[in-house]
Design a protein around this nucleic acid. Structure first.
Length: 387
DNA sequence: TGAGATGATTCTTG
DNA sequence: CAAGAATCATCTCA
């Protein structure tokens, strides 16, 4: 109502309205030639004020046939005035409303006034709103989109989902059989999440489209009786889309959470490790001690070992990483201790078991003088004393 | 049941 | 990015 008052005040302030202010100069000229332009505008303003100030009850309380010609009593209004009332719903409105709206629509000054009102409205309210319209893409949505894409929830069904599942299964480690069980389980659950996500997304998009169409139709209809420019309709559509996209963000967020929970369960599962079988350990040890001078298998060697031991390449890498450092530690311990006596050898419980394993294993390769990479430099430098 | 072994993870370093 | 180092969590066995 404030806006209307402001617009009307502005119009009254304009007085007779200059030709450039008014959308239809010819119409104005005609009015001026008739000598009563101000009176016409006054009439229109009066009618607008009367309609906008009048409550529905007041309108209904008044009896239409006493005020209007009999031709308005009919429901089959063939003129554009019927449309102004909202098509079929217009028949339900009080008849005096329909009459007044029709009178306004048919008024000679209506196009000019409509144009001016649109212009004023554009300059006032919408120019303020326009400032906040060009938002940059929400980083939160971008993050969620990226995550859903990476997890295989959004995007093409075949690639991402199975790739992510394979990665999760590979990370889960363990024997290949265990991995495949976890893999299929993970994939099935991810597919379920994906299905729910797409179903919900489709619903939201459909609802958004329906609501947008409804509002657009409503605004187009209303634009016959109040100043609504096409630009304003576009803005309204943008607002609706923003609202729906915030709902979509919630959906994306909860989907991401579900995926995270699923993943964390699989990550927890990988903690429940199994020791490698004896044969695998033997194969790895065999390689390690036969390459003591340089216990760093190449990628090809790792792949071969992984195949032989039925484990993954990363497990082979882990094993060699652990082996190198633990071997080094055990050797260092031994150099700091007195050589075990015969009694110690007979009762090895007094010494770390691993040390004796190293001793016995080392004894298998007595001529291997090996160097390895020092932790403080990448070049091989530290040489450990032979036992 | 506790100590040691062991596979995996994380952080640091060059 | 690979390797070392520290650490965690679980397994194994006396």
């Amino acid at each position: 109502m404030d806006e209307q008052t402001r617009m009307l005040t502005g119009l009254v302030g304009i007085g007779g309205l200059s030709q450039t202010d008014v959308g239809d100069p010819d119409s104005v000229r005609k009015q001026q030639s008739l000598g009563q332009p101000q009176q016409d505008i006054g009439d229109i303003l009066q009618q607008i004020m009367a309609i906008t100030d009048e409550s529905l009850d007041e309108a209904q309380a008044r009896c239409w046939p006493e005020e209007a010609p009999a031709r308005w009593a009919g429901a089959d209004d063939p003129t554009e005035g019927g449309g102004a009332g909202g098509g079929a719903s217009g028949a339900a409105l009080p008849l005096n409303f329909q009459y007044r709206k029709h009178a306004l629509n048919c008024h000679r000054m209506k196009p000019a006034l409509f144009s001016v009102l649109c212009e004023i409205k554009e300059k006032t309210v919408l120019s303020i709103r326009g400032v906040q319209e060009e938002d940059p893409p929400d980083p939160q949505i971008m993050r969620l989109d990226n995550m859903l894409l990476a997890e295989g929830v959004s995007g093409p069904e075949k690639g991402g989902g199975s790739a992510a599942a394979a990665a999760a299964a590979a990370a889960a480690g363990g024997s290949p059989n265990d991995g495949s069980i976890e893999h299929s389980d993970y994939r099935a659950k991810l597919a379920q999440i994906r299905q729910i996500y797409h179903a919900e997304l489709e619903k939201y998009e459909q609802a958004c489209s329906e609501f947008t169409n409804h509002v657009m139709n409503l605004l187009r209809e209303q634009s016959r009786t109040r100043p609504i420019s096409p630009k304003e309709i576009e803005r309204m559509v943008a607002i609706i889309h923003r609202k729906f996209s915030s709902i979509q963000m919630q959906l994306k967020q909860s989907t991401c959470e579900a995926v995270m929970i699923l993943r964390s369960r699989f990550l927890d599962a990988r903690r429940k490790r199994r020791n490698f079988n004896k044969q695998a350990t033997e194969v790895l040890n065999e390689y390690f001690y036969s390459h003591l001078s340089n216990p760093y298998p190449s990628e090809e060697a790792k792949e071969e070992l992984a195949k032989k031991c039925a484990i993954t390449v990363s497990q082979v890498s882990n094993w060699f990483g652990n082996k190198r450092i633990r071997y080094k530690k055990n050797i260092a311990k031994l150099t700091l201790r007195p050589r075990p006596t015969q009694a110690d050898t007979l009762h090895p419980a007094t010494h770390p078991t691993a040390d004796y394993e190293e001793l016995s294993e080392r004894a298998l390769y007595p001529h291997t003088a090996w160097t390895w990479q020092d932790s403080s430099s990448s070049s091989p430098c530290t040489e450990y004393p032979l036992l």
